[in-house]
């Protein structure tokens, strides 16, 4: 009987077990919690590995040409499509994608759930050849084709 009385009395002066959340700030989640992902476009190299490993296909990539040499690459991550598995962050070789511990993913519009980032990238330089080199390559290709045709004809004749 006595221990119960002690517990009852101590409960009278204890803090309530209920979290006072809306009145205070949202409490910190557990360590290594995977919340809204954060994307740093300055480090991204556009390898596309995150798009490959994403099961719910939460990211979209758009590539626009700014001029003849540079491209604008935009990544959009849809946080209402994400499973928060963290595979994209694990596979990101440049540590561009990280899972933050922000779990307040609440909104009324689809834009509230988008994480976007864009960066400019130089296009790979197309190989340049002189007209003589091109003519030589064409001649080599034609010769190879003629040889193949001849071999085929010989085989058909047998």
């Amino acid at each position: 009987m006595l221990p119960y009385v002690g517990r009852a009395l101590s409960n009278l002066f204890r803090k309530p077990a209920t979290e006072r959340f809306p009145k205070t700030d949202a409490p910190e989640p557990a360590k290594n919690y995977r919340g809204r992902l954060s994307y740093d476009p300055t480090k991204c190299i556009n390898c596309g590995q995150c798009i490959r490993v994403c099961a719910p296909q939460a990211m979209t990539r758009t590539i626009e040409d700014v001029d003849s040499e540079t491209q604008k690459i935009t990544f959009t991550f849809d946080m209402t499509s994400c499973t928060y598995c963290g595979l994209c962050a694990d596979f990101c070789s440049q540590h561009t994608i990280t899972m933050s511990n922000d779990y307040m993913i609440v909104g009324t519009k689809p834009e509230d759930f988008m994480v976007t980032g864009s960066f400019l990238k130089k296009k790979p330089v197309a190989p340049k050849f002189t007209p003589e080199q091109i003519a030589a390559m064409k001649a080599a290709a034609a010769k190879k084709k003629a040889e193949a045709d001849a071999a085929k004809a010989a085989k058909a004749g047998e």
Partner: peptide, 25 residues
């Protein structure tokens, strides 16, 4: 759809925030 909560699964705090928003709407 008035309010959406993202997360898989969302934390209870996020659900409370969404419900508060929904009641305001």
């Amino acid at each position: 759809v008035d309010v959406s909560v993202g997360g898989c699964t969302p934390k209870p705090e996020a659900i409370i925030a969404a419900l508060a928003k929904a009641s305001a709407i």
